[in-house]
Design a protein around this nucleic acid. Structure first.
Lengths: 149, 149
DNA sequence: TAGAATCTCTGGAGTGACTACAGGGTCAAG
DNA sequence: CTTGACCCTGTAGTCACTCCAGAGATTCTA
């Protein structure tokens, strides 16, 4: 199988496959007489594994660890659990901050509903106000007056 | 104000401030006799503005655009709305994929509750199964048998 | 006043995970 | 025989920082 076929079969870009080889995630395949990379079914499976992990946003360093487990079936899988747990925690933390971000942007967007002069734009005012340490729609002060007069 | 004081006042790292200067987001301040950067209140406000935008995950290129609006108060703010809307759409898209990701990882995690040999680890089986195009707990096949026998 | 700790400077390299070239070689179809 | 699709290597660019080396300036403590 040539690199283009492998790319099509797995949905991974050709350049990315070469990158994975250089990054030691995919072993270097044998070469045909013309110097083209010749991949086997084993490569395809390994690449699909990597792609699946990446779809789960698992960093390449962790994918590398997981691959060693695939290669040594008698080792203990405790670290695998740990790895997935860590990934889940990371995703959840990002999820929470994303949700806060969405709320902040919605509050900001609500300050300017129709276009007008920038000097009167609620959004710009809001962003500038942050510079003065005033309460803003995004990050209301927890204590004291959260309302601007 | 020296760079360290500015950093403390805004919560932006010293190196990041210098980076913003190089990236043309913050104008180069005058220098003291010893060559140290001497910042003004205007710099502080501008930096706070940038920081606030970054807290909203607005890319630096967009922050640069926003700063031109701050500098030209008579321009129309339509682009500001557009920019915030685009940011909101981006955050929402990421939010959705993050939520899917969380579900996938939870499904994966449920496959191995106690550590044992890697060869029998449900998580590893699952990740490897993806290589064969089989249905997996993360991405069940829409048609046909979604259950593994 | 000496020495140490802290601050500041510049320029350059490193991060993650690709992505995009430039400049060439190989191969099949028309 | 030329066109186009594919493949090769190596390098540089992306984003937004972050870290480092090696040097000079300032400030604190003994």
């Amino acid at each position: 199988m040539r690199i283009g076929e492998l790319a099509k079969a797995t949905g991974v870009d050709v350049e990315t496959i070469r990158y994975y080889e250089k990054a030691q995630l995919l072993s270097a395949p044998t070469r045909s007489d013309n110097g083209y990379r010749a991949y086997t079914q084993a490569h395809l499976e390994r690449l699909a594994f990597i792609r699946h992990c990446r779809a789960l946003d698992i960093p390449l360093a962790d994918v590398r660890r997981l691959l060693t487990f695939v290669d040594s079936p008698h080792s203990d899988c405790g670290e695998i659990n740990h790895l997935v747990d860590a990934q889940l925690a990371k995703v959840r933390a990002r999820l929470a901050s994303m949700q806060a971000l969405e709320r902040q942007l919605m509050a900001l967007r609500g300050l300017c509903l129709a276009p007008h002069a920038a000097s009167e734009c609620g959004i710009l005012h809001e962003l500038v106000a942050a510079a003065h340490g005033e309460a803003c729609a995004c990050h209301p002060r927890s204590k004291g007056s959260a309302t601007l007069k």
